[in-house]
Amino acid sequence: MKKEILISIIIPVKDGDYWLDETLYAIKRQTIFYCAEIIAIDSGSTDSSLAILENHSVHLIQVDPTSFNHGLTRNIGVEAARGEFIVMTVQDAKPSDEFWLEHLLNGFENDANVAGVCGQQIVPHDLDKNPIEWFRPQSPPRIKKYYFPGPDKFENLSPSEKRSVCGWDNVTAMYRRSVLLEIPFKKTNFAEDALWAKDTLLKGYSIVYNNWARVYHYHLNEPEYVLKRSYTVFYHFFMYFGFKPKKVQNDLISMIRNAKVLILEKKLSVADKFTWLIYNWNLRKSINQSVALFLEHCSLGEDVLSQKHNEICKSVPAAIKPKTISK
Rank of each mutant, 00 (worst) to 15 (best):
F68V: 11
F33D: 00
Q62P: 09
S43L: 08
R74S: 05
Q62C: 15
N69E: 12
I76Y: 01
F33L: 01
I38Y: 09
H59A: 11
F68I: 11
F33H: 05
E54F: 10
L72S: 06
A51I: 13
N55R: 15
T46S: 14
I61T: 10
I76K: 13
I52C: 04
I52A: 01
I32H: 00
I41H: 03
V78S: 06
E37S: 00
S67W: 12
F33I: 03
H56T: 03
H56N: 02
D42N: 12
D47Y: 10
N69R: 02
G71H: 04
R74F: 06
T73L: 01
F33R: 03
I41R: 04
Q30C: 07
S57K: 15
L60F: 04
I39S: 02
L72N: 09
E37W: 06
H59V: 13
L50P: 01
Y34V: 05
A40D: 00
N75G: 01
D64N: 15
P65E: 13
F33E: 00
E37Q: 08
I61R: 05
A51M: 13
L60H: 05
L60P: 05
V63A: 02
F33S: 00
C35E: 13
V78R: 02
C35V: 13
H59T: 14
G71V: 06
A51T: 11
H70K: 11
V58E: 07
D42V: 07
L72Q: 08
Y34R: 10
T31K: 15
S49I: 05
T31M: 12
N69V: 04
T73I: 03
A40I: 09
A36V: 06
Q30M: 03
L53T: 04
F33W: 09
L53W: 06
I52Y: 06
I76W: 08
D64S: 14
A51Q: 14
D64W: 10
V58R: 07
F68R: 07
S57F: 11
S43Q: 13
L72D: 06
V58T: 13
N55S: 15
F68G: 07
T31G: 05
L72P: 03
R74K: 11
P65I: 14
G44K: 06
I61E: 09
I61L: 15
D42Y: 05
G44R: 03
S49K: 04
D64K: 11
G71P: 05
E54Y: 12
T73C: 08
L53R: 08
T31H: 13
I52K: 07
R74I: 03
G71C: 05
A36L: 00
D42F: 07
T31C: 10
N75T: 08
C35N: 11
G44C: 02
V78W: 01
N75W: 01
G77T: 06
S49M: 09
R74N: 07
